[in-house]
Amino acid sequence: MTTIPAVSATRGPALDHDTAMRLAATEYGRYLAQLRSLSPEEWAAPTDCPAWDVRQMAAHNLGMAVMAASAPEMVRQNVKAQLRQRKHGGLLIDCLTGLQVEERAGMSPDEIVARYAEAGPRAARGRRSRPAWLRRAPMPDRQVVGGVAERWTWGFLFDTILTRDTWMHRMDTARATGRAPELTAGHDGALVADVVAEWAERHGSPCTLTLTGPAGGRWEFGAGGAELELDAVEFCRVVSRRAPATELLDTEVPF
């Protein structure tokens, strides 16, 4: 049996709640617009998540939005995911996302789009309404990031991860279909900057990072370190373990 090391600190969101919820609402809208633009052939395109094509990825995103919108639905999905984990093993998050895809296996692209149009705004409202005391509370299960088990607050899930997850899958879909994603400094640049800050905090080494493209920017962390330059979306692909990485870029950031 492999023992996974753990850290004692609990990770919370870096962005303030109002900013995080503004980004969440915008991201749900952008992903919906992307889904509405897809051709029938593009729904079957393979993605950087090997088990999923574009339709299955959308089914996961729909399931996650439905979960985020409703506390009872969050409990239901997590209980079923835990049962799957006990039966089949693996990580709980993989059991949860697999459940979301499986439960929507019979949905057509049109059905997924229609339901996402309802679920996205409900998810944004549900996440915004989570009380501060809950957002500060730690989640019961540790999450494995970079081979280390760490504790998150519910706020890190609600304010950070659920938006990063949708954003990254929008980038996955753009890559799978060969379409350029909508990117702006005010929205995507803010999300990428939050990822960069967490990445730098996780590796703790001096460096200068230059990210190109509409979501990019330049950051200096300490002095005398490595100088890195790459596209902003590609940076997120690398630190999310979607692309090969070396040295500081091998520091994983959760999405």
Rank of each mutant, 00 (worst) to 15 (best):
148 V>D: 08
223 A>F: 10
252 E>S: 11
235 F>S: 02
223 A>R: 14
220 E>L: 08
199 W>C: 01
36 R>H: 07
161 I>E: 07
159 D>A: 04
168 M>T: 15
197 A>Q: 09
92 L>H: 11
132 A>N: 03
197 A>D: 12
255 F>Y: 15
9 A>H: 11
29 G>P: 00
111 E>S: 06
229 E>Y: 02
233 V>R: 12
224 G>P: 06
49 C>P: 00
81 A>S: 12
38 L>H: 03
55 R>A: 14
244 P>L: 09
22 R>G: 11
251 T>A: 10
238 V>A: 12
55 R>C: 08
73 E>A: 15
172 D>P: 07
58 A>W: 04
135 R>E: 08
82 Q>Y: 02
64 M>S: 12
67 M>Y: 04
21 M>A: 08
176 A>Q: 06
237 R>D: 15
77 Q>F: 09
108 S>T: 15
68 A>W: 02
203 H>M: 06
210 T>N: 06
145 V>L: 08
161 I>A: 12
214 P>Y: 07
149 A>K: 15
127 R>P: 00
96 L>W: 01
239 V>A: 07
124 A>H: 03
123 A>K: 06
237 R>N: 15
133 W>H: 08
141 D>V: 14
184 T>H: 04
221 F>E: 05
202 R>C: 02
29 G>C: 05
248 L>Q: 12
106 G>K: 09
109 P>F: 09
19 T>S: 12
49 C>R: 13
3 T>C: 10
214 P>F: 07
36 R>T: 07
110 D>W: 00
220 E>H: 11
40 P>C: 11
215 A>H: 00
132 A>G: 04
40 P>F: 05
76 R>M: 04
212 T>Q: 12
76 R>D: 13
11 R>E: 13
187 H>W: 13
222 G>S: 09
195 V>D: 01
36 R>S: 10
110 D>Y: 00
143 Q>D: 03
108 S>K: 04
40 P>L: 12
152 W>L: 04
125 R>H: 10
166 T>F: 01
206 P>Q: 06
159 D>Y: 01
88 H>S: 14
41 E>Y: 03
218 R>G: 02
230 L>P: 02
194 D>Y: 00
56 Q>A: 15
91 L>F: 14
118 E>R: 10
50 P>D: 15
208 T>C: 03
225 G>K: 09
87 K>G: 05
209 L>C: 06
210 T>H: 12
78 N>Q: 10
91 L>Y: 13
47 T>S: 13
5 P>T: 13
160 T>H: 11
228 L>N: 07
212 T>N: 14
241 R>Y: 04
175 R>L: 14
253 V>A: 01
249 L>D: 06
172 D>S: 07
18 D>P: 01
38 L>I: 07
58 A>G: 06
210 T>F: 05
227 E>T: 11
117 A>H: 03
165 D>Q: 09
186 G>Q: 10
191 L>F: 02
181 P>S: 10
151 R>W: 01
